[in-house]
């Protein structure tokens, strides 16, 4: 993450928000002024706002709609959205909504981001999502997103997982998928991500491994140890 702005986009449910939270906390270790910007206009649930306590603790600014996680299901942009492009001393992780519909919101920032040219845009992929099971359908999503927001991707995050049933084998079995998407799109796999507890079995076997702490989710409320 050598660029000032990191944009995370991809198919609905591919894990963008969780990766955004993790990348921000990681970036804060080396950077003083870090912000997370929530541009999701698609999903009223599972937002970066779920992690606002963690951000406050780490000294990370959250740029988020006042209505995120409320009962007001409004596709609203944050009122301080332009800090992403106006304040060039800020390092920003931008969590974009799913698919082309979500990426549409990014179009408003596209001219300034492209003019400054200090961004990277990461394509988050998961082979176990039903509509991105192979490289061809995954590449289609990439093209749709780029057409919607007008910003070309610069890299891939392979976040292939099966939720609570993910094993090290799940991650290893998806490496070839990541490479196929890379070959088809001409983009490098910048990270392959896996939940922290799986990483011990994956170090050395997975290039650019990104350990992920799972964001607190609604499922925590009823999860049993045996599940």
């Amino acid at each position: 993450m050598t660029r000032r702005v990191t944009l995370l986009s991809g198919h609905y449910g591919s894990g963008k928000t969780n990766i955004a939270v993790n990348l921000a906390l990681r970036l804060r270790e080396t950077c003083d002024r870090v912000a997370v910007a929530d541009l999701d206009i698609v999903n009223p649930y599972f937002r970066t706002k779920d992690s606002d306590a963690d951000f406050a603790h780490a000294g990370i600014r959250l740029i988020s709609s006042a209505f995120a996680n409320s009962n007001l299901d409004l596709p609203a942009m944050p009122q301080d959205l332009y800090a992403v492009t106006d304040d060039r001393s800020l390092h920003v992780i931008v969590d974009v909504g799913g698919d082309d519909r979500g990426a549409l919101a990014l179009g408003r920032l596209a001219p300034a981001l492209l003019a400054e040219n200090d961004y990277e845009m990461l394509f988050v992929i998961n082979r176990f999502r039903p509509l991105t099971r192979d490289a061809v359908s995954t590449a289609e999503v990439k093209n749709e997103i780029e057409a919607a927001c007008g910003i070309p991707f610069t890299g891939i995050v392979n976040n292939s997982n099966l939720g609570a049933e993910t094993t090290a084998e799940t991650v290893l079995s998806s490496l070839s998928y990541g490479e196929e998407v890379a070959a088809l799109t001409g983009l490098p796999v910048v990270f392959t991500s896996a939940e922290t507890s799986l990483c011990e079995a994956l170090w050395g076997k997975v290039p650019n491994l990104l350990p992920l702490h799972l964001q607190k989710k609604i499922t925590d409320r009823f999860r049993r140890d045996s599940e």
């Binding site: 449910g13 998961n126 176990f128 999502r129 039903p130 997982n161 099966l162 939720g163």
Partner: peptide, 14 residues
Amino acid sequence: EKVLMKGNEAIAEA
């Protein structure tokens, strides 16, 4: 092989 789905998506695909 399993896939990772939202409940809503599972209804639609089923």
